[in-house]
Computed example of a mutant assay.
Amino acid sequence: MSAAVTKVSSNGEYSFTKPNRGSITLLAGLGVEGDVHAGVTVKHRSRIAQDPTRPNLRQVHLIHQELFDEVAVAGFEVGPGDLGENITTSGIDLLALPTGTVLRLGEEAVVEVTGLRNPCLQIDIFQDGLLKQVVGRDEAGGIVLKAGIMGIVRVGGVVRPGDTIAVEVPDGPHRPLERV
């Protein structure tokens, strides 16, 4: 199976979920056009409270469709946009990508992967118990964050469901993703 965009979502107002759209437009250095989290500096409320002048490394949020399938086995019903992501993907292990990976989405858009999404308590408000499904432990007891990845827009363009995703991993040594 090749990597593809399955859904795109955006919201101009602060809310946990984002409605699905027919397309979104990525703007270089800003994020998703019309999305509340677009901007050069941080736009997530928790980040603004810490330091509103910090660069926005969370311009675009991507989640793999396979996560929804995984949590469904545990009885949770989650779909594209429900966890606030802008782009839902399939056929790509987003969490295994190293920092700095470049994702070419469709014909024009380019997103550089900056890190992992830090799951927040709002996930349990959305569905009680879901947070434990998107935060796990590996064999060594280390924390595994599964709620998607974040990126910055290097080249703008329109992204639609069905668009292919080309992955360009940076030259090594690779840095594993950390929360941003």
Rank of each mutant, 00 (worst) to 15 (best):
G141M: 09
V155L: 11
G148Y: 06
H64N: 05
T53N: 12
K43R: 11
S9F: 13
F68V: 02
A49H: 07
I125W: 14
I143N: 06
L121R: 12
R179W: 15
R154G: 09
L103V: 01
V155S: 14
D82Q: 00
G129D: 00
R137H: 08
C120F: 07
H64S: 10
L62V: 08
T88R: 15
I152M: 15
A109N: 07
R175Y: 00
K132W: 09
T17M: 01
A28K: 15
V40R: 13
V158C: 06
L27R: 13
G75D: 02
P176C: 01
D171H: 07
V8G: 02
G79E: 09
I152S: 14
G84N: 06
E139S: 06
L57A: 13
V78H: 13
V134G: 04
L57H: 13
G39K: 02
E13Y: 02
V180E: 07
G34L: 10
K146I: 02
D51L: 12
C120W: 06
G84C: 03
N86Y: 07
L57P: 04
L94H: 08
L97Q: 03
A38Y: 12
K7W: 12
E107Q: 14
S46V: 11
A109S: 04
T6A: 09
R154D: 06
D69F: 12
E70D: 07
L94K: 10
T6I: 08
V78E: 11
K7L: 11
G100D: 03
S2D: 09
E13M: 01
F76Y: 10
L83Q: 02
V158G: 11
L97M: 04
T41I: 04
H174I: 05
H64F: 06
T25R: 13
V134W: 05
I48Q: 13
G106H: 01
M150Q: 12
A28V: 03
G115I: 06
D93V: 02
V40Y: 03
G157W: 02
F126K: 15
S2C: 09
V5Q: 01
T99D: 05
Q65G: 00
V40A: 14
E108T: 06
D93N: 11
G162F: 04
G39S: 00
N86I: 08
P119M: 04
E112R: 07
I63N: 04
V158I: 15
G100F: 01
I24Y: 05
D51N: 15
P170D: 02
L94C: 12
S46T: 13
M1W: 01
R175G: 00
L67H: 05
D82M: 02
I149D: 06
R45V: 01
E139G: 04
A49P: 04
K43T: 07
E112P: 05
R47G: 01
G115Y: 09
I123V: 04
M150L: 11
I125L: 15
H44Y: 15
R21K: 12
K43I: 00
T53S: 15
